[in-house]
């Protein structure tokens, strides 16, 4: 009994010392919580946030909630228990996330949201998001232009539970529906997924072999749809995506996919960490809570100038 008690005390002392030492070395622990890094978009945003935080002298932990609100809540509790000083979050659902962010706030930990909004204000320290609606409208305007303002098209939408799937679809339609000669002949979700988009496109081509354009809620679905079209000998169908991933930028450069909306991932991740640092240093918020950053249209004219969701410094022409 005595021996085990001594062991517990010694262990506690050792752990306490380790924690104290790591706290002294860094400005604190920043948790970066995002959806699965299997999607390069989320991998990039997490990587950029981590790099910026470490550059500013913080230790970091980068974890994924896999779009599961319960898992997200567990991760928040872990972050609170581990004494995180701030959380950078790309959330797992606009409504379901509110309670997790509130819990962190109650524990004195500010959450800086990136990429996706939540449905309430005054809980998160900041909501810095790509303007998905603006980006989708912009892609749709270019889609209509390349389609010559007429013809049949298919829309592949994202995962139904994801707010951005709806925002982008709305952005597409608020533009395209104003052109009476543009006709949507099919619309289906491919759940942001490349393989599913391939399979759905293959099936849709059976009933719509003459489709002129395909507009997709993200880049992975655009890649899947385009691959199915190429396999069917219809590589000239106008395909557009959304995100600005390196794979789609390469496809645009190769004359495959025609355009995408580049999300300002790097800009947003860096801004979130910088604003967290500002708050932790000055005790007040640097900017208003809701910040919406515009997307950029990427097409054959400028695709060579971008990689990793950001402009390549010094490249100003694709000729």
């Amino acid at each position: 009994m005595k021996k085990s008690l001594i062991l517990v005390v010694v262990l506690a002392l050792v752990l306490g010392t380790v924690a104290a030492v790591s706290a002294a070395e860094s400005k604190g622990l920043i948790y970066v919580i995002t959806p699965s890094h299997a999607n390069p978009f989320f991998g990039a945003e997490a990587e950029i946030a981590v790099a910026r935080a470490e550059e500013l002298g913080y230790t970091t932990k980068s974890v994924s909630h896999d779009d599961d609100a319960n898992k997200q809540m567990e991760l928040f509790e872990t972050a609170i228990a581990e004494g995180a000083v701030a959380i950078i979050l790309d959330n797992a659902g606009a409504d379901a996330t509110v309670s997790a962010v509130q819990k962190a706030k109650d524990a004195g930990i500010p959450t800086f949201l990136i990429d996706r909004e939540i449905s309430e204000e005054g809980i998160a320290a900041a909501q810095i998001v790509s303007n998905n609606y603006q980006g989708a409208s912009m892609v749709a305007e270019y889609f209509v232009e390349l389609m010559g303002e007429e013809g049949t098209y298919i829309e592949l939408t994202g995962r139904d539970t994801d707010t951005n799937a709806h925002v982008r679809s709305q952005g597409f339609h608020d533009v395209i529906d104003e052109y009476e000669d543009m006709e949507m002949i099919a619309q289906d979700t491919a759940n942001w997924d490349q393989n599913e988009a391939f399979a759905k496109m293959e099936t849709m081509l059976q009933s719509h072999p003459d489709v002129k354009g395909v507009i997709c809620g993200n880049d992975t679905m655009a890649l899947g749809a385009h691959a199915a079209l190429v396999a069917a000998g219809k590589g000239d169908v106008i395909v557009m995506g959304f995100d600005g991933s390196d794979d789609v930028i390469q496809s645009i450069r190769d004359g495959g996919i025609k355009a995408t909306g580049l999300q300002p991932v790097a800009t947003i991740s860096i801004a979130a960490v910088d604003q967290a640092d500002y708050y932790l240093t000055n005790g007040e918020f640097e900017k208003e809570e809701k910040q919406s950053i515009d997307c950029v249209l990427i097409n054959a004219e400028n695709a060579c100038m971008y990689e990793k969701f950001a402009p390549i410094e010094g490249v100003t022409s694709c000729e």
């Binding site: 303007n131 998905n132 609606y133 603006q134 409208s137 925002v167 809701k290």
Partner: peptide
């Protein structure tokens, strides 16, 4: 201003309506 609206869609639709 963006902050005066519920979300991006509302904010965006204001612009669309003005443009229309």
């Amino acid at each position: 201003e963006f902050g005066d609206f519920k979300d991006q869609t509302e904010y965006g639709q204001v612009s669309k309506e003005i443009n229309k």
